[in-house]
């Protein structure tokens, strides 16, 4: 059995401990909302996906048993599945609109070039096929190890590396003009 830093908090939350639930949320919500926002683009959809993922957690917390997978791996997988569900239900045009939404964490003093770069990167990431996008987000932004990322996506490490390599190649082609500035 692997060592899971969240196991005790999940058990306490499952027993109705609100403080434990709040700690779990504080610990994981920033990564979950960042992942959902990069996957979906739309802030409202991202918040809905993450809220639903935590709802699943509250419902199942009492039955959670530490085992072969870490709790965080499970939570990432649930969040990604919520994102996939929303992606399948929306028309393609909304992806392009979502890519133009400004970064809420942006520094007001950010230069126009950086703001354009942010928008270009966001659009390029959203243009990736879902599984390449998820692989890039998990490994580059969430800093998941290759084994953890492959478990979250339900693929082998070799398949993960293929997704990453193809995703990065596509991003380099889309962002290639930034090299000339």
């Amino acid at each position: 059995m692997i060592e899971d830093p969240d196991a005790e908090l999940v058990a306490r939350a499952g027993a109705g401990d609100r403080a434990a639930a709040q700690l779990l949320m504080t610990r994981h919500l920033p990564k979950m909302i960042t992942l959902a926002r990069r996957m979906l683009g739309d802030p409202g959809d991202a918040e809905d996906a993450v809220q639903e993922a935590f709802m699943r957690l509250w419902i199942h917390a009492a039955r959670w048993r530490p085992g072969a997978a870490k709790f965080e791996t499970w939570l990432y997988r649930v969040t990604l599945n919520q994102c996939y569900d929303r992606l399948r239900k929306r028309p393609t045009a909304r992806l392009e609109e979502a890519a133009t939404v400004a970064d809420p964490a942006a520094d007001p003093q950010r230069t126009l070039v950086n703001a354009d770069l942010y928008a270009a990167v966001a659009r390029a990431v959203l243009d990736l096929p879902e599984r390449q996008r998820a692989a890039i987000l998990l490994c580059h932004y969430q800093e998941c190890g290759n084994i953890e990322a492959s478990e979250i996506l339900g693929v082998s490490v070799e398949a993960l590396e293929s997704l990453l390599a193809r995703g990065r190649r596509a991003l380099r082609q889309r962002l290639g003009h930034w090299n000339e500035r």
Binding site: P30, K31, I33, T34, R37, R38, A46, D103, P104, A105, A106, N114, L117, Y118, V121, A122, V125, I136, H140, Y141, L171, L175, W178
Partner: peptide, 8 residues
Amino acid sequence: ELDSMRPI
């Protein structure tokens, strides 16, 4: 370029 997107 990817790092230009900061955490939410």
